[in-house]
Write a protein that binds this DNA or RNA. Structure first.
Lengths: 207, 207
DNA sequence: CGCGCGTTCGAACGATCGTTCAAATGGAAC
DNA sequence: GTTCCATTTGAACGATCGTTCGAACGCGCG
């Protein structure tokens, strides 16, 4: 019968805020909007949070932390580089699809933080990017030089995965499993899956 | 000796506004910021533009129009589906890299417009997406069923290409040609370029 | 010079923003 | 019943927002 604890109420606030931020955007959303969405008064919000920016920071850092943690667990013990990539993609899309609002806020409001908040989130970003780059290096060690610059490949994969908040509906006719499978195949084997002759590439045919 | 015409001054204003919007974000930027950046008074901005939202709309629609126009020209007369894809990617990244600020505003501030402005930009988005989907259909007709759902593939490609405003520096050590080549190879042939056994995919190995 | 007109400006409008604070509330402990 | 403390609130603060408007400017033309 015990009422919700303080941390639980903060979580509720963060969850409601993530939804509103995802819909309206961080800067378009007022603290009064958040108060209305979470069912407390305007001043009540400030009992749980020091500022609007800290609220955004908590949404971003907590979810990023969770993504990194589950990613490390998903890769733990897996030695095959190709499967490690698959696990990385799978973990990212799984978490994204089941936390759409929070992950849209993390992806789309990256530039809204400043100072220490920004630096801490950027540190996580560096750590996460480094993890992917390391896996890509493993792949190249096992399968020889890749078809693409490693940095371009890494950021292209992040682009594929993070862009989904612009179009993907977890409740639509494309399940998360299918989405993850498709992105894995796309990144690893490409769309056509056949060796692409350099002569067909526009840059070389135009030069 | 003739001074700049009215349209030229509007272009200058739009260009300055795109830079500020790209750096600070649309909603964080005030009309006073734009006035300062374009060297006119606050009221002077309203002589060329009816509202802040129309200013954003003009940036988005003009550049989207340009991308679509150059895309149609780049694909004109090219019959090989693979090369059509290459041209599509090449055109997109070329324009993106040479209009970074404007294209970041187009990609990142998609949800900032409302009403008629939003609808018109969404119409262009539908047209552009349709063009890519048609090319993908051609590819599948020529090379058989693809490795990935067509819609997932299309939006993944858009994700790869539009995400670059988060990391790519046109003046860095990765040239636009290399970027375009890499994205082409990634999308068409994948990162490793080898046939990926389904057993290595996490979804099927975990089930 | 003076008239007209496209252009620019300073000043102000009401609205809304993030944040603060003293006061009110409510239930557990004595 | 009274004290205590965590929680919640209404009201207000100064700042900044997008937008408007009448006046001033600059310059070619009579």
């Amino acid at each position: 019968m015990a009422g919700p604890t303080r941390d639980q109420k903060l979580d509720t606030l963060l969850s409601a805020a993530a939804k509103v931020f995802a819909e309206r955007g961080y800067h378009e959303t007022s603290m009064r909007d958040l108060a209305r969405a979470s069912g407390v008064s305007l001043a009540g919000v400030y009992y749980y949070v020091q500022s609007k920016e800290q609220l955004l920071y908590l949404i971003q850092s907590r979810n990023f932390e969770a993504v990194i943690t589950t990613m490390r667990a998903a890769l733990d013990g897996v030695t095959d580089p190709i499967e490690r990539i698959g696990r990385f993609i799978d973990n990212h899309l799984d978490y994204f699809a089941s936390h759409m609002a929070e992950m849209k806020v993390l992806s789309h409001e990256a530039g809204a933080l400043q100072g220490d908040y920004l630096q801490k989130v950027n540190d996580m970003k560096r750590e996460y990017t480094r993890a992917l780059m390391d896996v890509l290096a493993d792949v190249e060690r096992a399968h020889g030089p890749a078809h693409s610059n490693r940095r371009v490949a890494a950021y292209s994969l992040f682009g594929m995965m993070n862009w989904i908040y612009n179009w993907y509906d977890p409740l639509g006719d494309i399940g998360v499993e299918m989405l993850s499978q498709n992105v894995c195949h796309l990144f690893l084997g490409g769309y056509v899956g056949l060796p692409v002759s350099d002569a067909a590439m526009p840059r070389s045919s135009a030069g």
